[in-house]
């Protein structure tokens, strides 16, 4: 460089050989940072996106029976047509939808209520928060056992209490009419602590001067929350809602652990349990892959708008 340079004002690119530029590219942050992100990215991409692609490919075949290398011939969408006209699939999807809407809505409202309660200066706040969040640290397999016992018809605590009021006993898990709601209640028990934590973080980022300003303006506490504080929690609500909705779609473990079989309690079958059952109980690999793809599309329906929202807000 240097020596053969001309000094005119436009001498920007002249005199710089491709070697220099090449060396610059090699030294650039992009190339230098590649080893850091490329390895985890490759592992993740193969697992997640490779898996999705492979799953889709299987869903186009007619594979069933024992697990063996897939034969990719006669590719068509037959499995999807079959799934969409299968009453079991329709029913499972309905349950999914009920779970998604009611579980998400109640969790959000209840979590917000808990967060606002804890946001007021109460004593032993950390301990209380820890207790509320405790169920989140447990496996669904464990919490399913706990609630199975809670709901037990003969001597479960809920029926014992109902007995004191001369009600029941009610077979919460065995009755298909109410089993889904019993399970939603248990899941709310497990998840509302999570929603609370998300809202608490949102509440803490709002300067307390806003609350004080509202007080000086003579607004009631309720009014300040409704008009000033809660509208600012939009971002918290969105991210919590996405997490809850996606969970409602894929919840499998809790339902499986209730019975210990591929058949969850009657009236609580959702796409996730149906899919695993079709695959591992009946070995309908292609069919279950098709159901899995439908499930993925539903999840995508939730996360795509969310990702777009995040991208637009610049908060990715």
């Amino acid at each position: 460089m240097g020596t053969n340079e001309t000094t005119g004002p436009s001498a920007t690119e002249e005199g710089v050989g491709w070697q220099t530029k090449f060396r610059y590219v090699l030294n650039s942050d992009f190339v230098r940072s590649a080893p850091f992100w490329a390895v985890p990215f490759a592992i993740m991409a193969v697992a997640v996106y490779g898996g999705i692609g492979y799953n889709f490919a299987i869903s186009l075949t007619d594979n069933n029976g024992t697990i063996e290398p897939a034969t990719f011939s006669n590719l068509d969408f037959e499995m999807y047509f079959q799934a969409l006209s299968d009453p079991n699939v329709i029913q499972a999807a309905t349950h999914n939808l009920i779970l998604l809407v009611s579980f998400t809505a109640i969790c959000l409202v209840f979590g917000l209520f808990l967060a606002i309660m804890l946001d007021r200066q109460i004593r032993y706040k950390e301990t209380v928060q820890m207790i509320y969040l405790l169920p989140m640290s447990l496996s669904f397999v464990v919490t399913a056992q706990l609630w199975l016992w809670m709901y037990d018809t003969d001597s479960g605590i809920i029926n014992e209490l109902l007995g004191l009021l001369s009600l029941g006993p009610i077979d919460f898990i065995g009755n298909p009419e109410i089993a889904l709601w019993a399970i939603i209640f248990a899941l709310i028990w497990q998840f509302s602590g999570y929603t609370m934590v998300v809202y608490l973080a949102g509440l803490q980022s709002i300067p307390s001067s806003q609350f004080e300003a509202g007080m000086i303006d003579g607004a009631s506490t309720l009014r300040i929350y409704l008009r000033v504080i809660i509208p600012q929690l939009k971002a918290s609500s969105v991210s919590a809602a996405v997490v809850l909705m996606v969970f409602a779609l894929k919840a499998f473990t809790f339902l499986y652990a209730m019975t210990g079989r591929y058949f969850p309690p009657q009236g609580t079958d959702i796409l996730a349990t149906l899919m695993v059952r079709e695959a591992w109980q009946y070995n309908n690999w292609a069919y279950s892959a098709a159901i899995a793809t439908l499930l993925l599309l539903m999840a995508l329906g939730v996360i795509a708008p969310y990702l777009y929202y995040q991208y637009r807000e610049g908060s990715l």
Partner: peptide, 22 residues
């Protein structure tokens, strides 16, 4: 690249378990 990571957080595992076993 980042978007692919974030989307990966939400993918239901059901969508990959059949290939995973194979």
């Amino acid at each position: 690249v980042l978007l692919l990571f974030v989307a990966g957080v939400f993918v239901p595992y059901q969508a990959v378990i059949v290939p995973l076993a194979r």
